[in-house]
Design a protein around this nucleic acid. Sequence first.
DNA 1: ATTAGCACTCTATGTCAAAGAGTGCTAATT
DNA 2: AATTAGCACTCTTTGACATAGAGTGCTAAT
Lengths: 385, 385
Amino acid sequence: MDERKKTILKAIVDDYVATAEPVASKALVRNHNLRLSSATIRNVMAELEEMGYLKKPHTSAGRMPSDKGYRAYVDNLLSVPAISKEDEKSIRDFLSVNVNKAQDLIERTVECLSNQTNYVSVALSPEYSDSSIEQIKIMMIEPGRAIVVIVLSAGVVHDRLIRIPAMLDEKQLNAIAHSIERCLTGKKLDDITLVTISSAAEGTGLPDALVNQVLYEAYIAIKQTEKIEVYIDGRHRLLQHPEFQDVERASRFYSVLRQTQMVAGYMRDVQHEEEAKRRAAILDQHDGDAEKELSVRKPAYMVRIGQEIDIEGMENASFITTTYRMGGEIAGQIGIIGPKRMNYGDMIAQISFVNKAMSAEAHRHCGLPPEDEDDLDATSFESLG
Amino acid sequence: MDERKKTILKAIVDDYVATAEPVASKALVRNHNLRLSSATIRNVMAELEEMGYLKKPHTSAGRMPSDKGYRAYVDNLLSVPAISKEDEKSIRDFLSVNVNKAQDLIERTVECLSNQTNYVSVALSPEYSDSSIEQIKIMMIEPGRAIVVIVLSAGVVHDRLIRIPAMLDEKQLNAIAHSIERCLTGKKLDDITLVTISSAAEGTGLPDALVNQVLYEAYIAIKQTEKIEVYIDGRHRLLQHPEFQDVERASRFYSVLRQTQMVAGYMRDVQHEEEAKRRAAILDQHDGDAEKELSVRKPAYMVRIGQEIDIEGMENASFITTTYRMGGEIAGQIGIIGPKRMNYGDMIAQISFVNKAMSAEAHRHCGLPPEDEDDLDATSFESLG
DNA sequence: ATTAGCACTCTATGTCAAAGAGTGCTAATT
DNA sequence: AATTAGCACTCTTTGACATAGAGTGCTAAT
């Protein structure tokens, strides 16, 4: 694709994103300094359409980008701007209140991102399977019920009510609790199985039947912390966008969004895939020097457009997702879902800064260790290979 | 209003609710066994319109109920059916899974109610100000951070991460925690103030500065549990109803629904007002016998229609709300929000049964004491006075 | 008191014409 | 060879108009 085609494609995408109307040749000469007549533009447009980058809603209408057109735009023509100082401030301010623990921060981040972008924002809780248990406590609530508190790292605390045998008294429960504590503290979540945990049964001097129920419930509580939680916000914003003026369509889209587990699974898979690809590419380039490790850390901004999305009913949407980090190792996904017609550059800039601000807050408010600031910059980004 | 007018008004409301179209005189004779000609019906309709119970979208159209018409229908013409065995089963089944504590149950109930009614469902967490603290524990997470666990009654457990002075070690924290525990256990939430709690500072032998921060944070944690939480579900269902086919309108309605604190406040106020009125009425009738106490317990089903709702932007909606009970004393609000055109009888039947099933589950799954089953029947209901 | 009958009103639908915006192609221009 | 002016052609949008149909309100008859 020659330079001129690129310029024109970029101009068309920019205009279309701004207006939501098919872009006409005359409008292009009017709004951009192209130094060409509309007739020439028409010729180029015809070629771009031939090549599959543009399409027309009907014969005598202007052009709009096809999925392929958006893809080319995002891969080659896009520049990611810096976000304004005001935006920076409002993001930081927004994230710095009402946050007591990691889960609060994620919730707040999703809301913030949706505010900033005016689209739907989704986050997945980190995958904790690699984290280890720092503390595990079991406390009696009343005969027959207890609470398990699991601390993974400073900001990440989960708890769950469990049933215990009704005849177990507080002293006995404490004995079992201590035994579990001794047995599991420091263990990776991934490495904990029913077998691991059952070794805690020994030495309490209590009948197996009693102990086993507690162990089992504790095990369930632990496994529960590994479950990926989905945070989603901003669904109400969709109706403001012209592509969702059709109620039928909006309604169908909402049904898909309700399948949160599916959306989450997709986000995670795609991100993993992407990161693996990236790691491989870097490893390929400089064969195994230390610098690579660091570089892999930079978050990849993953963009999926329209048909590229493998979810029934999402053919008219786009995803922009990335990986967030809290306290060094803990990592989950965050991103936005909007119509294909969105300002990809600005959106990436927003996600990028929100991501960075979130990591900083995780350190400040949740007691998690700090990140290396450099790793969080998003001047460069990667998309679909 | 004579019998015939009532019959016809009821028929019109029923038809309009079923079809969402203005009801014509001919259609009425066709669908109902009225033994009158359409001309007579037309005369009656004209009178009902004159009286303000009906209105027409334009001169030559059929009639639809006005707010006043709905009100008369709900107050005098409505019969609340029994719900089907299948509905009973699916409600019970739905509420009996994934429930570990009171908060889970409320969440589940809201979802259930929205499923059953196909409208938006809202619940408010109970007002705990009358409840007392059964247990309060503070546990160290890491230097500088601790978790406060507050147990109000078996199924109601709140926790919150707090900051503590970094130099406080585990032993010292435990000393303070025990002191707080001794001081607050059994106290009503309402009666706990900064002054009450500060008496726990004595006798720990630690410097005031250290102790005070912990006390203050614990106090905040306690006050936090009193905050009314709003649960809401089913917003996506609105778009299915003909009254929300206009995106503009749907969007405006969503904005109002986002003001959850406002909606919650309204629900609570109206319910309180209603219950006070009711109590007064009963007290007035039988002057102060024991039976009254019991009778006041029966939940009042509060219906607010259109203009009656005092919230900007809700003029086209209806509320049906009621009070739920868990474990005897604990009580909050639950209800649905839908278009004015809804099947009030069926909806009240659904809310009523969901309410009853919820109380039963609170006993079974959250360890709360059982309710007196009779109190939960909703064959009778009360509405706006 | 009820009803048949009819004039009148309003909506919904379809057709038609005209205006406007845009393209594609051809022929002229640089 | 690349660009552009010019024009025919296509498609949408808008408004005007006619028509059918549904419904009411009123009058006169039962």
